[in-house]
Design a protein around this nucleic acid. Structure first.
Lengths: 343, 343
DNA sequence: CGAACTGGATGAAACGTTTTAGGCGCTATA
DNA sequence: TATAGCGCCTAAAACGTTTCATCCAGTTCG
């Protein structure tokens, strides 16, 4: 019961404590006969390694953490699964932490992870301002890889999808369809992805010298409920001023908008076209199949995990890298309805 | 850089090592002046507690793990969020592990968690047979709470939703609508929820003495893709034999079925009615809003976490409890189309 | 005035590993 | 016959905490 330790195993097998450790860590350096005796002792005593002691000695743990904005968001769950493959393949363990888009919770998590001396951290930070807690991790030598964020930082690796390009793709498409009043829905704007996608949309407008209008409606979060509320606000506008197309910062918002519009008798895409972002699994299954900007989600997770492991192993010789993936627009029915342009 | 430890803090503050520990753990037992000196030393040195050492001494960690069947399944993400609230409220940390419905991965995770001497484990086991790895955890004194599974076991707590009742609700509804050929879609049947929901459906049939036929189509997993494949198989049947209603073991399968049927020109609910299970957020937003059996997901997570903490604290005096929640049928358009019964 | 407390601090032991320097008995080499 | 090398094993140090028994200097009390 009182959890057998390595010493008891040693006594039971009639060897020294160091030998048991060798059986565990370098089996080939110990003679087959003794090795077997030790292994038998291990099973009869039900010995299980104590990872705390191991870590204490090693100076760091074998777990890698990923801190996501929202565990319930299909975008992140796919990123997690991608990262998981790589991390578990390397014999380590991935733990998932949820910041819930709350920087206080994010900070608490990072502090805990620092206390645990984790092997590394994959994170999509809540804010894109300075990151004192994150910098502290890096100073302490814990590798950090930014996921889907912060291609600019010099002291850490990052993987990202070009969100500005994604915004452009969506906007170009809507302009091609002849829309003149377009709304961008998303928030909070402190989330970098939200800001970048908007920037791309605005850039597309500018590049074309288009006369179309791009209105921004800021939501409090990136959820279905937030999308529904945003749609309500749009519907409060007089029809003449109401946008004929909305570009949403993610698919959850887009689904919320779709739900609310449909419920209020507004036809999609005839009255209002919708383009989402992320192309989550449910996008194609929605009431009106949703156009969306697709990101290579699991590749994102995999690439992040690979960069992290590389940095964790190579140590000082490591050069930080920034991997950028290209998004791709998937047009479905929700935006497939050209307008006659009146100018 | 080389991570300051408690001893350096002590030296820097001109006190003994034990005093620093007291400042950290029992601040009120040390005189205000010294306390302040120590705190100053801590901040100037950038000292961060080493959790491995702490754990080693304490004998167990302050993290609780939850092992789910699928991180990407909205059912589990909601359970996780419920558990998170309680665990973090208690100052501990919740880590999420993904078994991916693979018992080998589940075992690997449990072994790792045992090595880490976690404070407790919330788990939805892949199989409902004997659980040697889980039993080993319990013998070692690590509390285990079964989530949504195994109300029968005497040596552990559990929380669950009455899946048999859920199956009954769905089936009764479909029978009320006059369906005579009904299919149950789900799998693998080794997953207890899948089996129980089926049992409930079968029981409803029997209790009514109905002549309706209940056919089972086993899927390989509980995902959208699996649902799509299952729908293909249904469509391969001649129309006269084809079920007029399908009851799916979860909403992901139901969404897959809906997608595939719609794509193949089969009308829902006119040609085929669908009832799902879980009532995930996307159920109401689907192409045809999905009827579904709703479970109190975050309550499930919260209750599980509370039972766990209770057991972890009260130790031997703890009596295992089994909390059962009642599910509830939400009827939407996907099954809202009565048949004229031909008998 | 001695005894009994008290608040505050100390020193050392213990937690369970991993690792490193070295020891011992052999065999192969010069 | 030294010597070097090798295979196998051991002993001890170190990792950074927490805790417990103790101690010390005041203070209060009889």
């Amino acid at each position: 019961m009182a959890t057998a330790n390595i010493k008891e195993v040693a006594r039971h097998a009639g060897v020294s404590l160091g030998t048991v450790s060798n059986v565990l860590n370098r089996p080939d350096t110990v003679a087959p006969a003794t090795r077997q005796r030790v292994l038998d002792a291990i099973t009869t005593l039900g010995y299980v390694r104590n990872d705390s002691a191991r870590q204490l000695r090693a100076g760091h743990s074998r777990t890698v953490a990923i801190v996501v904005l929202d565990v319930a968001n299909p975008f992140f769950t796919d990123v997690v699964r991608g990262a998981e493959q790589v991390i578990e393949g390397a014999g380590a363990m991935l733990v998932v932490c949820n910041s819930g888009e709350d920087s206080a919770r994010e900070r608490r998590h990072l502090e805990l992870l620092e206390e645990q001396r984790v092997r590394g951290v994959l994170i999509t930070p809540v804010d894109h301002g300075p990151q004192p807690t994150l910098d502290k991790l890096i100073e302490r030598g814990i590798p950090v890889v930014l996921v889907d964020r912060g291609t600019g930082r010099a002291n850490r690796c990052s993987v990202a999808v070009d969100d500005v390009l994604g915004g452009r793709l969506a906007m170009d498409h809507l302009l091609d369809q002849g829309h003149q009043r377009i709304a961008y829905l998303g928030g909070p704007l402190t989330i970098a992805q939200v800001a970048d996608r908007h920037a791309g949309a605005a850039a597309a407008l500018q590049d074309r010298g288009s006369t179309a209008e791009l209105r921004v409606a800021v939501t409090t979060s990136l959820t279905v409920a937030a999308g529904r509320r945003a749609a309500e606000e749009l519907l409060a506008l007089p029809v003449r001023k109401r946008p004929t197309a909305v570009f949403c910062a993610n698919d959850l918002i887009a689904l919320g908008v779709l739900q609310e519009l449909t419920a209020r008798g507004v036809r999609v895409p005839i009255d209002v076209a919708i383009v989402g972002y992320d192309d989550i699994e449910f996008a194609g299954a929605a009431a009106v199949p949703l156009s969306s900007v697709r990101q290579p989600r699991d590749q994102l997770g995999r690439a992040a995990a690979e960069l992290l492991l590389e940095e964790a192993e190579s140590g000082d010789t490591h050069r930080h890298r920034h991997v950028v993936f290209q998004p791709e627009l998937v047009v479905r029915r929700s935006s497939d309805q050209p307008r006659r342009t009146r100018r």
